[in-house]
Design a protein around this nucleic acid. Structure first.
Lengths: 249, 249
DNA sequence: TGTATTCATTCTGTATACAGGTTACGGAGG
DNA sequence: CCTCCGTAACCTGTATACAGAATGAATACA
């Protein structure tokens, strides 16, 4: 304990944001394990900010779902059961599916359609390259998913989705990069891309329910990848949010 | 300004909870209108608590969706467009529908089925009585909806739903008691009850998709009621969360 | 008269001091 | 050896003091 040295956080624009990002990073980096109590004073020492911004960050992280409030006061890192992870993925599918349906029902201006097609073309290009640029894939994949949500033109839906996606294992690119270069993994990406195309087609053709169901099924790829990872034995450190899994109970 | 006198809040177990309930009540009671800046010091004076619990309450209310953070710091009361209200209702339908589907897919133990049937029987009794006990109806209706969510056995889904239902116009009993004793209103309640029965039947028969779609349609009753209220001209004060509607933009 | 500038006020963000409660540890008794 | 209890340390909830930024008004100038 050499004093107030920020550990997991780079200096942010505000102390509150710094604390929020810092604590979240500590959890994601496995320096705080599920069930660990998150003491305010410890966070103050680790992050080099005072109690007030730490407190604000803890409240936000509780709402985000990464922390649980203890009955006697204070917080602990939340653990998730396997079923809860699967549910979160399914829930993302439900909400993104609703976004796709809204987009189909409400219609897209041509500019939006072009932008979505461009993103998918870029994804095709990434998939065609032999040394697969996984980072580019994740960025473009995320971009497509966010664009679909934007096309739904519903702030309420967008906010709800942001809350689900905040969970580290529920994002649109969760569990994709894990088994890297295997043939099965590449096939998975090809299937996902064909689903992207189908979703966009359904939206353009104003087929709301088709778009919704396609998007749901699309999300279930993440579930399948999670099952593969789970069956393959847990490297635990290799997968971003997997260490939050809770075997007990 | 006669000093530190709690205005809209009764003394709660903790100052933070007191501030949370107090500010929320101030918004619901139209003492704070959409667009109004919510000053911390003003809340301190009105609620008789210090800035720290007020601050915590403001953060929570922002996550709840009732407040918006201003770019220069601080918060203002959020206003909702008519479309946003409709979207919130639809979103509740989507999530409750998913809960019904989960319940159907995962199965119910007989005790749960009995409890749900009892609730619906009680609702029938309330509907049969001539001076309609609207308070009892709302309580039982809420009870049924919460029970369905509980039957889904998914904490992630439950938490998401709580966040939607937190919006004052998105609850399961939103806009029901407004047109009170009219014939049309009673028919609406009868239809809703028949949908309750159908949802339960679908869940028991493990018809997941049927249960989901029935629940979605069930939520749309609230939308229809909202349309009726809107067309009937706005009494604004008569309906709980309606004053949060924002005509501009 | 319109506009830009400057200054004062007010607010939030941040830090810290204080009090009550909770928990953990150690000792005494059964 | 186990259990119960008391004490002490710690931790959270709360209140308040301080600093910087944003806001608004008043004024000087074009």
């Amino acid at each position: 304990m050499s004093g107030a040295r920020p550990a997991g956080a780079r200096p942010a624009e505000s102390q509150t944001l710094s604390a929020l990002l810092g604590i979240r990073q500590l959890i994601l980096d496995r320096e705080l394990a599920p069930g660990d109590r998150v003491s305010e004073l410890v966070m103050v020492e680790r992050l080099g900010v005072s109690r007030t911004p730490v407190r604000a960050a803890l409240i936000r992280l509780e709402h985000e779902g990464l922390l649980t409030a203890l009955p006697g006061g204070g917080y602990e890192v939340r653990g998730f059961s396997w079923q809860e992870m699967v549910d979160a993925i399914e829930l993302r599918g439900v909400l993104e599916g609703t976004a796709a349906r809204f987009a189909a029902e409400r219609g897209l201006e041509p500019g939006r359609i072009r932008a979505l097609e461009d993103t998918l073309d870029a994804l095709d290009a990434v998939l065609a390259a032999d040394p697969l640029d996984m980072e580019a894939y994740i960025a473009l994949n995320r971009s497509f998913h966010e664009a679909v949500v934007a096309c739904a033109r519903s702030s309420v839906l967008r906010e709800q989705l942001e809350r689900v996606v905040a969970l580290p294992f529920a994002g649109p690119s969760a569990f994709v990069d894990t088994h890297g270069t295997s043939r099965e993994a590449q096939h998975s990406l090809v299937i996902a891309q064909s689903q992207h195309r189908a979703v966009l087609e359904a939206i353009v053709m104003r087929q709301g329910m088709r778009a919704e169901m396609l998007m749901r099924e699309h999300a279930r790829i993440a579930r399948r990848n999670l099952e593969i990872i789970t069956r393959a034995g847990l490297p635990d450190g290799a997968v971003p949010g997997l260490h939050l899994i809770r075997n007990r109970e």
